[in-house]
C-alpha cells in the first residue's frame, strides 16, 4: 500500500513537469515539415475550445470590443480603449450569445490595459494566464477576437502566428487584427493567456498586444478601480461635467428638493419635489453650496448614491448616474 502511494506521487510529479514544459516547437527556428506543423495544430485543437469559451464580446453604447475571462467569479481583461473608463456599465456576450451585465474596473491609460467585472452569477469559464513572463521571441501564438462585433453564426475568430517583436510594454505578432478584436486574448500554444490585443500599424501588418506582465504590474490598482496614467488609450472624465437635474434648499436634516428637471437623472431615478437629500456618496448635504462642491468634483456618467427622506418620513437609498451637462 505504501509502495503504491509512492508510485502515484512519482507519476503525478512526472505529469506535473510535462504540463509545465515548453512546447519544443517554439525553440525551432521554423517547423521542419509536416510533423512539426501537426504538433502546432494538435496543440491548437486541444486548447481552442477552452480559450473560445472564455473569450467574450464587450458591448458599449458606442461600439464593441473583445475581452477574456480570467477567473471563475468573472474578472475580465480587455484593452483600456475598449472599457474607456472606470465604473461604467457594459454588456458582455458569451460564445453562445448569453448576455451578462458587467461594470468596468480600473485601467492603465498609457499602456492600454483594463479590467472588467461580470455581474452575473458564476462560475464562468475562464483561462489561466502566464504569470511568469515565459513568452519568447518566435513563440507560436493564437489570437481570438469578435472581429467587427459579435456574430453568433460565426463565433470568435482564431488566427495563428508568431511573436515577432518584444518590447517593454508591447508584443507584436503576425496574427492579423482588425476592429472589434481590440481587448481580445493572445494565447500561447498551451492555451495560456499571454497578452491582450491593442492596436495595429498604419501601413505594415503590425499587430500590437499588451503583455500579461503589464497587467500584473497594475493588477491591484485595476482591481480597485483606479484610473492609472494618462492617455493615449483612455481619457479621464473631466470633473464638473455631470448633470443631476434638481434645485434644492436647506431643509430639515439635508437639502429639500424644490424643482426637478424634466427627464433629468434625478427625476428618472424617482426623486420627487419635497424629498430631502440626506447624503450623496456618504457626504452630508446641508445646503446648495455643498451640493455644488460635490458635483464640481464629479463627471458625466459617474455613479451617485443618494440617501433621501420622503415626505412620508420613509428613508430610501437611490443609485443612479449623472448625465452630461
Amino acid at each position: 500500500m505504501k509502495n503504491s502511494l509512492i508510485v502515484m506521487v512519482a507519476i503525478f510529479a512526472a505529469f506535473g513537469t510535462a504540463a509545465m514544459a515548453r512546447p519544443f516547437i517554439n525553440d525551432k527556428p521554423a517547423p521542419e515539415g509536416r510533423g512539426d506543423l501537426e504538433v502546432i495544430q494538435s496543440l491548437l485543437h486541444r486548447n481552442l475550445p477552452a480559450a473560445r469559451a472564455a473569450t467574450v464580446a464587450i458591448e458599449l453604447e458606442k461600439g464593441s470590443g473583445t475581452g477574456v475571462i480570467v477567473s471563475e467569479d468573472g474578472l475580465v481583461l480587455t484593452a483600456a480603449h475598449v472599457s474607456t473608463g472606470v465604473d461604467l456599465d457594459l454588456t458582455v456576450v458569451m460564445e453562445d450569445g448569453t448576455r451578462h451585465d458587467a461594470v468596468s474596473l480600473g485601467l492603465v491609460a498609457s499602456s492600454d490595459a483594463a479590467m472588467i467585472r461580470l455581474l452575473g452569477e458564476g462560475p464562468f469559464p475562464y483561462v489561466e494566464y502566464d504569470s511568469e513572463d515565459r513568452t519568447r521571441l518566435g513563440d507560436w501564438v493564437f489570437s481570438l477576437g469578435h472581429s467587427g462585433g459579435f456574430a453568433e453564426d460565426r463565433g470568435p475568430v482564431v488566427r495563428l502566428g508568431r511573436v515577432v517583436r518584444i518590447a517593454q510594454s508591447t508584443y507584436q505578432s503576425d496574427c492579423m487584427l482588425i476592429g472589434g478584436d481590440s481587448g481580445g486574448p493572445l494565447f500561447d500554444l498551451e492555451g495560456r493567456l499571454v497578452a491582450i490585443h491593442s492596436r495595429v500599424g498604419q501601413r505594415l501588418p503590425e499587430n500590437m498586444h499588451v503583455p500579461m506582465r503589464e497587467f500584473l504590474r497594475y493588477w491591484d490598482a485595476m482591481k480597485n478601480g483606479e484610473f492609472v496614467g494618462s492617455g493615449p488609450f483612455a481619457q479621464m472624465p473631466s470633473p464638473g461635467t455631470g448633470f443631476l437635474g434638481l434645485v434644492g434648499e436647506a431643509g430639515d436634516g439635508g437639502l429639500e428638493i424644490q424643482r426637478l428637471a424634466n427627464r433629468g437623472p434625478a427625476a428618472k431615478a424617482g426623486l420627487e419635489v419635497g424629498d430631502v437629500i440626506l447624503t450623496i456618496n456618504g457626504n452630508e448635504v446641508p445646503d446648495r453650496d455643498t451640493l455644488r462642491k460635490i458635483l464640481d468634483e464629479m463627471a458625466a456618467g459617474q455613479r451617485i448614491t443618494m440617501e433621501i427622506r420622503r415626505e412620508s418620513g420613509e428613508h430610501e437609498t437611490l443609485e443612479f448616474r449623472l448625465d452630461e451637462r
Partner: peptide
C-alpha cells in the same frame, strides 16, 4: 455583425 460600430484599433504612431 456591424463592422462600423466595432471599436477600432488605434494606429500606433
Amino acid at each position: 455583425m456591424s463592422a462600423e460600430r466595432s471599436i477600432l484599433l488605434s494606429f500606433a504612431t
